[in-house]
Amino acid sequence: MIRIEGIKKSFDETEVLKGLSTEFEKGKTNLIIGRSGAGKTVLLKLLVGLLKPTSGSIWYGDTDFTKMDSREVRTLRMDVGMLFQGSALFDSMTTEENIRFPLDMFTNKTKKEKLDQVNYCLERVELDGANDKYPSEISGGMQKRVGIARAIVLDPKYLFCDEPNSGLDPKTALLIDELIQKLTYEKEITTVINTHDMNSVMGIGDNIALLHEGRLAWRGNKSEVLDSDNETLQNFIFASPFLQRLRDAALGKKQ
């Protein structure tokens, strides 16, 4: 489990996060949602240590991440996988080399053991046989799946996904969501997803934290979204007239 307490983050005079406290449960898909500029990406970067908070603490289990030195942070990161918005695959490496990179760097496994592990991960993301493809030779959806395979190759305890569905068609986005959820449940991973994709919210939102102007505006799960009378949540989720009509229809049926 990851717990954050009173996190504040400022850039020069601008306070992006204004004392945020919440927790992300183990074995569940924890979604951070909010409008652009709400502080989602900053929060995700704070969680993985790419940024340092101005104040507050981030707890991985019983350990305060913000008090760790750089060596301890690197050790903790062996348990962390991350899927980037742009996948961040190394262009000059093949799919296999990309996924094998953490194994090469941090394990003493034999070549065969590494290859087996890579193939297992590729199988999990339904990309068997794509070992020799370069990132430029595969589609955006496939790149995301390779990114997931690389993120899970060291069996992480924590998985962070930054906008995993951005730039993907709805079907591929659904596939990526299902894949992340499946891996989260099977491996009991604490998964934190930064998204503003409504399909993800309603599909895999075990825990949802809505950020609004640097503060936690609402916390709940996907089944509580429709019934919530939180105005910020309703304005965010049902921003388009089409979705408003759908909500009204759904609530009408319920009543």
Partner: peptide, 14 residues
């Protein structure tokens, strides 16, 4: 710029 350095950092690479 392509977040490769961030990706390596998060893997635990110096």
């Amino acid at each position: 710029q392509k977040e490769h350095i961030d990706a390596m950092e998060i893997m635990g690479v110096n």
